[in-house]
């Protein structure tokens, strides 16, 4: 009697869960993101430092013109598992690559003698500077659309790095019958509802939405110092990986700690279970 109740409950729970997972759709009518085959996915995933460096270069040379990353500091680039981590310079503030990269940027500051607003060369302690002084200026410079900050973009979108990679490689000619407004572009991976702009069969509204960003990448646009072929596909994957790192720089530490914690807890559970059975051995229950 008791057993069948438990079984029934378990079945009910499992059925509900199965329904839940089966009916999952891509967010907002967008196409489900492609799999970028990233090295950092899964419980034992790690970032590929070479990929992070290439991704940073793409961000630096293409994206940073419009997109800020203002929750990331230069010194983060030199932290463990980051793009410019080096065993020799374990303190990222002393990392020469980090210092050099920081010095390439101009950051806003105040002259301590005159009080005027000035710009100076960046230091590792500085945050990555924004290309615009504020949101209004960013909108004015981009036809009213605000290029979002990329610091946590991989956490802010379903699909994470796969979504970013798919979006960047997803630009294509809109299907005939789709009315595209001026200043926006069709992308099947972009969240949106195109029913209002579709003149075709209403049971087959195209997936995706309109994005204000024009296709930002082109083959060969960024030269990779390690000689990797610079295709749009490669650039997209690399910058998606870099954004994934920026969004979650502690991911590798987190997973490694997790393995240790789970092993410890499993061992602890085993010991405690034996202790429990020992204690209860002589009690009829």
């Amino acid at each position: 009697m008791k057993l069948s109740f438990v079984k029934t409950l378990a079945f009910a729970a499992a059925a509900s869960l199965a329904l839940a997972s089966g009916a999952a759709q891509a967010a907002g009518g967008a196409k489900h993101p492609k799999d970028g085959g990233f090295s950092f996915e899964g419980p034992f995933g790690t970032f590929d430092q070479g990929q992070l460096q290439r991704g940073f270069k793409v961000y630096r040379e293409v994206c940073a013109a419009c997109h800020s990353m203002n929750l990331v500091s230069f010194r983060n680039l030199g932290e463990k598992n980051g793009p410019f981590w080096s065993e020799e310079h374990s303190n990222p503030n002393d990392n020469p690559y980090v210092k050099a990269i920081a010095a390439e940027f101009e950051v806003a500051d105040v002259d301590s003698e005159t009080g005027d607003a000035i710009t100076r060369k960046g230091t590792p302690a500085d945050r990555l500077p924004s290309p615009y002084p504020n949101e209004a200026a960013a909108r004015a410079g981009n036809g009213g659309a605000y290029p979002p900050d990329l610091s946590v973009m991989a956490k802010a979108r379903h699909g994470g790095a796969d979504y970013i990679y798919s979006l960047l490689t997803g630009y294509r000619q809109p299907p005939a019958g789709l009315k595209v407004q001026p200043g926006v572009y069709y992308n099947p991976y972009m969240a949106g509802d195109l029913a209002a702009y579709w003149t075709g069969d209403h049971d087959h509204v195209p997936a995706g939405g309109f994005i204000a960003m024009p296709p930002p990448l082109a083959d060969g646009q960024v030269t990779f110092d390690d000689g990797t072929r610079s295709t749009v596909e490669q650039q997209s994957k690399d910058v998606a990986a870099f954004i994934a790192w920026a969004s979650d720089p502690k991911a590798t530490v987190r997973k490694q700690t997790g393995v240790s914690v789970m092993l410890y807890l499993a061992l602890f559970a085993g010991i405690t279970y034996v202790s429990y059975r020992r204690i209860w051995r002589n009690v009829a229950h």
Binding site: Y264, L265, L267, F268, I271, T272, V274, S275, R278, I279, W280, R281, N282, V283, A284
Partner: peptide, 24 residues
């Protein structure tokens, strides 16, 4: 009942469980 074994007797396994708890 039965052997009349005191369940709080300091078996190794209980010490081990306690140590694991302290470590955790």
């Amino acid at each position: 009942h039965g052997e009349g074994q005191d369940p709080t007797r300091r078996d190794f396994i209980h010490i081990a469980a306690g140590a694991a708890a302290a470590g955790g």
